[in-house]
Nucleic acid binder design. Structure first.
Lengths: 204, 204
DNA sequence: GTCAGTCACATACCCCGAGTATGTTCCCGA
DNA sequence: TCGGGAACATACTCGGGGTATGTGACTGAC
């Protein structure tokens, strides 16, 4: 998090940032697999050596980018959730915040389109556990605390809900700007319906 | 679909089948990216030349495998759906059939774990449109016909539902056999809840 | 003031694996 | 029996991720 304060000013931090920005652009436009490290280095006006000085591998470069995006976004969603007294309203607010973030081209494309391809499902799930997934279980737990949804056993419910969020995010990431508003409204339907359904479901 | 009836018997068809079987095994165990074509060829007792004689590329090999699996599975799910008079019961039956198929190691691993990585989202969506996605919209349409769920505009709802199915499938594919029964029951919860919620949702 | 040490890269290289080009064998029909 | 094509095998290219090594600039110690 805190950048190493090099004695030689922020020259080194600047190249690292340039690499992350270049990677964000190219990975978003061409995709992770279709972008070579030489492309990223050239776009940042350096060579491949600089990449491997700052990051462990091509995957490591993507991970740093991904971690950055998820950190800020999950923070915003959690803030939206905790700003509300009522957990039910908090969930809706967090969902709205999330759907807005997905409409932003870079976040949607990298997190929901490229991340599985770049990191693989195992690594991706570790990050999910760290960020969005943890927030999601917190929110579901708060809802359960109010008796609004039933007790559940394993983690099937949050996983499936997360699948819904991924699908919505991926859909929004592919939606042209002029339709975003309408699609975002459509995306809210299944989530509110699920909440309604869960609240009227008795334990079995 | 119909195999070319070579004059020299089914020797050529046999190698093609051996290649598909070897690919299914290795892709399931090690994953698509971690399996080289030489590995597949060696496992089938042939060389890489045989692969490129029968398939256009590594992706093409996976596609043939994927298409085969999806064809049989979507057929089974559709049969389960159409065997019921009531669309509501049909949806439940199709869901059960689907969740059972996901518990089978090869189908779950290849379709929900490897397919996005091997084919990419665009190609994958074309296959979804051909198979599971088409069935899904048919089922939702039948439910809509009975007035059990509201009218919806775009394709956000089926997409999100498909995301739920993918998450459930992926979860089941990673579940050890002794827990499959329990997890499968847990997976049914959000789907039935969604149906309940949709049926009690009025148009907005 | 100079010299060892290290940071921040650049350059040159290795190697694996997908894809290709070409060779070879067997069979069939003319 | 001979041309031809199907069904592979063999040998090769090449792009890109990863590595090993070189190099200049700065810094802190003595």
């Amino acid at each position: 998090m805190v950048e190493v304060k090099s004695r030689r000013g922020e020259y080194t931090g600047a190249t690292r940032r340039a690499l992350l920005d270049a990677a964000a652009r190219l990975f978003t436009e061409r995709g992770f697999a279709q972008t070579s490290l030489d492309d990223v280095a050239a776009d940042a006006r350096v060579t491949k050596g600089a990449i491997y000085h700052h990051f462990a591998s091509k995957t490591g470069l993507f991970e740093a980018l991904f971690d950055e995006l998820e950190h800020t976004e999950s923070g915003a969603a959690r803030a939206a959730f905790e700003a509300c007294e009522d957990p039910g309203a908090g969930v809706v607010a967090a969902l709205d915040q999330f759907l807005r973030a997905c409409s932003e081209p870079v976040y949607g494309a990298l997190v929901f389109r490229e991340a599985p391809l770049a990191l693989g499902w195992d690594t991706l799930q570790r990050y999910e556990a760290k960020y969005s997934y943890g927030l999601l279980t917190d929110m579901l737990g708060a809802l359960r605390g109010t008796g609004r949804i039933p007790i559940w056993g394993g983690d099937a419910l949050p996983r499936v809900v997360f699948g819904m969020l991924s699908a919505a995010g991926q859909l929004l990431a592919r939606t042209p700007p002029e339709d975003v508003e309408r699609v975002r409204a459509e995306c809210r339907v299944p989530f509110t319906a699920l909440l309604v359904g869960l609240s009227s479901t008795t334990d079995s």
